[in-house]
Design a protein around this nucleic acid. Structure first.
Lengths: 195, 195
DNA sequence: AATTGAATTGAACACCTGTTCAGATAGAAA
DNA sequence: TTTCTATCTGAACAGGTGTTCAATTCAATT
């Protein structure tokens, strides 16, 4: 019983990536076996190798695709003219994106250490590109006098860490609506940069 | 060649925990084998079981000891009377503690998912106890009018996430001294809570 | 010098790991 | 109906996993 009806590469390929994403996010890269991923897709382990050269590349592709999609989404979303406006857009975008793609985001900062050196460098470059978008906003706000902050780099890292933290505790459908949440974070962000 | 000169339980036990801590922090719990840990200590895998019932308990003990030590250290360090003073002490303490014990801290929030349910609950309770220390400061500051913040719980989580973020990028001996770093974070924290 | 007992080894257990590949399968094309 | 070929299986490979335990080693005690 090799090929099942309606089972084609165009379906299996994405299904493998979706299963890997979900399992890696839940249990961690090292704790998930190729046989588990295959089982989730309804296929045997050998079939995975029609779609990825190896397990490492499967992880790397997930992280790279996520980072590239993040950068693309931000390029579309970024707007505003004053530093204050631009920062508010960034804060709201970042929270939205994270909550919509929590598995990808979670993976992307939990599994960096399981990448080979070359793959790690590649992802780090993309991540740094994203950080630089925020850093540019802060630098402009410092120049214009809209923001009061001691160190642009430190503020950038602190803001991103604060925003990423949302993932660890916020659950949709709880006490706070997403919009309310974004408002609270935007207020705190504004306080952090002295605006 | 069983026992080497000067090799006793009082030495091997702590050495195993130190090796496990270091290896788990570097590569992740799932990716480190008992044989690797044993090799780092200079012993065979079987000998580890004189000091821990199993690998899971080895991880759990590291996390529990860390959390208990953190709570103890905070009990010693906490001081100040006004909410503003108390918050500054917390911010500086948290950064200091994290930078001094980066492996433990890193482990404690990277490897939670590798704990069994019961062990996870146990650690979560300790973590929540620590968070509540900060939350109490914020609640008092809100009551007294010293702080302006929309949601005590959200501010607590945001502050802790921001402070934890220091670990991911700060390196001792770089551009910023530790004291300078603490000052910058204290300023941002103050802005976040509207003080 | 003989005995004791804590500390450690080395081999074994049952099973899991990522990966490869000859062979089977089945939908589409001829 | 036969041929073709993308897709998938099943078995194998070489090695690794956590864990157990009888046998060994050696410092301290008698």
């Amino acid at each position: 019983m090799a090929r099942k009806t309606g089972s084609h590469a165009e379906i299996t390929g994405p299904a493998i990536r979706a299963a890997a994403l979900s399992l890696f996010a839940r249990s961690g890269y090292a704790a998930v076996s190729m046989r588990e991923i295959a089982g989730e897709v309804g296929v045997r382990a050998g079939a995975l190798y029609l779609y990825t050269p190896d397990k490492q590349t499967l992880l790397f592709d997930l992280l790279r695709d996520h980072m590239e999609h993040l950068l693309g989404a931000w390029a579309d979303a970024k707007s505003g003219t004053t530093p204050v406006e631009r920062l508010e857009v960034f804060v709201r975008f970042h929270i939205d994106y994270h909550l919509d793609r929590s598995d990808q985001v979670f993976l992307s900062y939990m599994e960096l250490r399981n990448l080979t050196d070359a793959n790690f460098q590649s992802i780090e470059t993309l991540r740094r590109t994203y950080e630089d978008e925020l850093q540019a906003i802060l630098a402009d706000g410092l120049d214009s006098g809209d923001f009061t902050l001691a160190d642009v780099r430190v503020s950038t890292m602190a803001l991103i860490a604060m925003l990423n933290g949302v993932l660890t505790w916020y659950r949709e459908g709880g006490r706070l609506s997403r919009d309310h949440l974004q408002g609270i974070y935007w207020n705190m962000a504004r306080g952090m940069v002295g605006a």
